[in-house]
Design a binder for these strands. Sequence first.
RNA 1: GGUGGGUUCGUAUAACGGUUAGUACUCAAGAUUUUCAUUCUUGCAAUAGGGGUUCGAUUCCCCUACCCACUACCA
Length: 545
Amino acid sequence: MDRRTRVRFAPSPTGPLHMGGVRTALYNYLYAKQHGGDFIIRIEDTDSHRFVPGAEKYIIEALNWCGIIPDEGVDASGNVVETVSEKHPHAPYRQSQRRSIYRKYAEELVGKGYAYYAFDTADELAAKRAEMEAAGQTFIYNHITRKSLRNSLSMPESEWRPLLETHTDWTIRFMMPENRVVKMDDLIRGHIEVNTDTLDDKVLWKKADELPTYHLANIVDDHLMEITEVIRGEEWLPSLPLHYLLYEAFGWQDTQPRFAHLSLLLKPDGKGKLSKRDGDRLGFPVFPLKWTNAEGEVSRGYREDGYFPEAFVNMLAMLGWNPGDDRELFTMDELTEAFSLERVIKSGARFNPDKAKWYNKEYLRMKSDDELTDLFIPVLEQHGMQVVGCAKCALTAGAEVTVQGADFTNHIFTRDYVRRIVSLIKERATFVADFWDIASYLFTAPVSYVEKDAAKFWKEENYSLALKTADFIHDFKGEFTKESLEGPLEEYIRGNEWPMGKVMNCLRLALVGASSGLGIADIVTLIGKEEFARRMENIKSALGC
RNA sequence: GGUGGGUUCGUAUAACGGUUAGUACUCAAGAUUUUCAUUCUUGCAAUAGGGGUUCGAUUCCCCUACCCACUACCA
C-alpha cells in the first residue's frame, strides 16, 4: 500500500514526439516529482516495421530540452540504458531487448486457460473481415467466431500442437470472457464499465517476430517495473478492460497500477486532433524540436522557432489542467507543487498558437538583459554584425580598444551597446529573433524609407524644422545621454512652438526609415552624433530637401 | 455500424446545488506617448437542445444532437 510512486512514459520510436506526447510525459513527470517518486522512460519498440531511426534519440533530446529528466531508463549522456545497475534495476528499457522475457508470460496465460494459440494468417482474417463488411456486418474475433477459426480451441491438440513447430506465424490470443462486465476506475474520468461481449480476442504474442504486442509487453513491464500509476493518452481508454483482465489473469491485482487517461490535443480550428499538417497550414510547430524525416521533409520545432522551453512547458501544462485559481505562470517547481490529476480536464483541449506566443512573451520579459544579450548576439552575427567584449565572440585583434560602443562602418559593436538596446526593446518582442526586426536600425543605417511614412512626414514645412532640430542635437553641449538630452530637446521644439510629432517623425524617418521605433533621444544617444549626421545626409539625398 | 469518452464566451478555463456566470488569450474602442510598441481603462462574447429531481440546476439523472477515440499479428 505504501509503495514508492513510480510512473513511466513509454513512447514508441515511430517518429518525432508530438507536443501532445510531451504533455503526457510532462504530467507523468510532475506526478512523480510531486510524490517524491520515479519517472521512468521505456521504449516500446515491439513493432519493427514502424521503427524510425533517430526517433528514440529525438524523444530523449526533446524531453531533455523541456527539462523533463528521467530518473530511470536513460543515462546521463542521454542513452537508453541496456544493462542492469543500481540506478537502473530494470534494464534493458527497450522492449525489443526484453523479448526473451515475454514469451513465458504469454505461455503462462495459455496454461491457465486465459489465452490460446491461433493459426489464422493475417491475410485470412483480413479476407474474412472484408467479406463480412461487404455483407454489412462486423467481424470480431471473439467467443462466437473463435470456434470456427483455426486455433487451439477449435482444433484437437493432436492437430494444433505440431503446428507450433511447422507454422511460422501463429499468435497467442487473449480469450476474452463471455458477457462479463468489467468495472474500472480512472483517476480522471471516474468509474467506467464495459461488457466484454463488445471486445475481441487481442493478439498478445506473435511468433513471426518472436515479440509481444503492446498489450502484453505493456502489462508485463509495468508489473516488473513496479509502476504505480499509468498516465497515458485517451486513445488507450478502449483497451483498459483488456488490461484489467490481464492483471487479473496474471493474479497481479494487488499491485495493479491506477490509471489516468488524458484527453487529446485538438486542432486550433475545425475538427479533429492536432496533426503535423495543422502546423504547416497555420504556421506553428507541433513538435518540440525540428525534425527531418527520411524523405528530407522538415518539420519546424518550438526550440528552433525561438520558444523558451520554460514557456513551452508552461503553456502545455495549462492545456488541460489548471490550478483552480487565476495563476497562469508557473516554473517547473511550481507546477510540481500545484499539479494534481483531479484538476485535469476530461474534454479535449484545442491548441491555441496565440496563447503559446503570449507565454513566450511573458517569459522573455522575465529574462535578464544579460541573458537576452547572450541570445541576441548570435542573431546579430547572422546578420553580419560583430560583437566584441564578450567571451563568446570572435575578437579581432585590438578591436576592443578601438571600438567605442558602435562602429557602423565596420559593423562592430560592444556587448554593452547591445545590452543597452536589449533593455530598451525587450518589452516589444515575443522572440529573441524579433529583436533584429525591431532594432536593426541601431546596427545599420536604413537603406530605404517607408513610402507611406515618408509621404506623410517628409514635407518641407516639417523637414526644415527637423533639420534645425538636428543641428540643435548636434550642437548639444551637455552629456550625450538620453537622460540629459531628452528634456532640452523637447524644450527646444516646444519653445519654438513647432509641431512635436511632425518634427520628431522626420528625424525618425531619417534614423529608422519609418515612423516607428524608439524615442529620438534614445536613438541618437545610442548611435552617436557622427552616425546621426550621416543618416541626416542620407535622407536629404534620398528624399530631397 | 458497434463500444467507450466528451460538450461553459472564437480559444483555454473558473464557479460547496444559490454569482450581475469570473479570469486569461484573441479582437475592438479609448487614454497615455514625439511615432510605433508597451502600459492602463473599457467593451464584445458562453452554460448544445429537451425532459426530469429540487424552493432553486452550469453543477445531479435521463433522452436527443454534435464532437472525439477505439474497433490491426500499430502503438
